[in-house]
Simulated scan of single mutants.
Amino acid sequence: MGSTWLVAPPYRRLHEAAVDVVVLRCENPSVSFPELLETMGEMSAPVIVLSPRADTETVVEVFRSGMGYMVEDDFGVRVLSSAVMAAMMGNTYVSPVACAVLREAAWRGRVAGDAAERLRELLSPRERQIMELLSTGLSAQEISLRLRLAEKTVRNNLSSIYAKLGARGSTEAVLRWLGTAPAVRA
C-alpha cells in the first residue's frame, strides 16, 4: 500500500517510498507545480495542488494537466480527505472557488459556434444537465441526489457523455465541456 505525501520544495523525498497521491501546498503553483512535475519524472501519482491563489491562469494550467486544485480556506479536512480518496481512484477534485474560476474562464472565452459549443450540441438535454453539475465538482452520487435519479442512471449517462465527447474520464469531459481543452475531431 502506498501513501499520500504533503510535499514542499525541493521534493527529493518523493522517490523514497511508494506514493499514491501527492498533495502540493504552495504559494505560487505557476512555479512550484512545473518543478514538482519535473522532479516526479516517470512517477504516475496524481497531484492535488493546495494554494491561496485563485487566478484563472494558474487554476486552468493545473487543471489542464489533469490534477486537482483546491483553494485554501475553500474546504475542510473531510473534503481534502475525499479529494485524496478520489485521486487514488483516478478522479480529479476542484474546490468550489477553483471550479467557479474554471467556469468563468470558459464562459468568458467562449464564442458561439466554436468547437466547445459543437460538442455541447452532441449531448441530450439530460446529459447537458449532468455535465453542468459535474463541472461544478459534484460526484455521480451527488448528481443523482440533486436530480432525483438512480446513481446507476447518472453513471450510464456519464459513460455516454464520455463517449460523445471523446473523453477518458470526468476531468477530460469537464475540460471539453468548459472549452478549456482541445476538442476531438468528429
Rank of each mutant, 00 (worst) to 15 (best):
S3N: 13
V7P: 09
P9E: 14
P10D: 15
R12I: 04
R12L: 12
R13F: 13
R13V: 12
L14T: 00
H15I: 01
H15A: 09
H15E: 05
A18C: 05
A18G: 09
V19R: 02
V19W: 04
D20P: 05
V23C: 05
C26T: 15
C26P: 00
E27Y: 05
P29S: 05
V31Y: 14
F33T: 06
F33P: 15
P34A: 08
E35P: 09
L36Q: 08
L37M: 07
E38S: 05
E38Y: 14
T39F: 03
M40C: 06
G41Q: 01
G41A: 06
G41W: 13
M43F: 08
M43Q: 10
S44T: 08
V47A: 03
V49A: 01
L50E: 06
L50P: 03
R53I: 10
A54I: 09
A54Q: 02
T56H: 07
T56L: 05
T56F: 01
E57M: 03
E57Q: 08
E57W: 12
V60E: 02
E61L: 10
F63E: 02
G66L: 06
G66I: 12
M67R: 09
G68N: 07
Y69V: 06
V71H: 01
E72W: 13
D73A: 02
D74M: 03
G76R: 05
G76S: 03
V77H: 15
R78S: 04
R78L: 08
R78I: 11
R78N: 12
V79K: 02
A83S: 04
V84M: 14
V84R: 13
M88K: 14
M89I: 09
G90L: 09
N91S: 12
Y93K: 06
S95W: 09
P96L: 01
C99P: 06
C99E: 09
C99V: 11
A100V: 10
V101C: 07
L102I: 11
R103W: 13
A106L: 05
W107C: 06
G109W: 01
R110G: 11
G113T: 04
G113F: 08
A115I: 00
A116T: 05
E117H: 01
R118Q: 06
L119Q: 12
R120W: 15
L122I: 03
L123A: 13
S124F: 02
E127S: 07
I130Q: 06
I130M: 07
E132H: 10
L133C: 05
S135N: 01
T136G: 10
T136V: 12
L138P: 03
S139T: 15
A140G: 15
Q141Y: 12
I143H: 07
I143P: 03
L145I: 14
L145V: 13
L147T: 10
L147A: 06
L149M: 14
E151D: 11
E151K: 13
K152H: 11
V154P: 00
N156G: 07
L158Q: 09
I161F: 07
A163W: 04
K164I: 02
G166H: 01
A167L: 03
R168N: 12
T171E: 12
E172H: 11
A173G: 06
R176V: 04
W177T: 13
L178D: 07
L178K: 06
A181W: 03
A183I: 11
R185E: 14
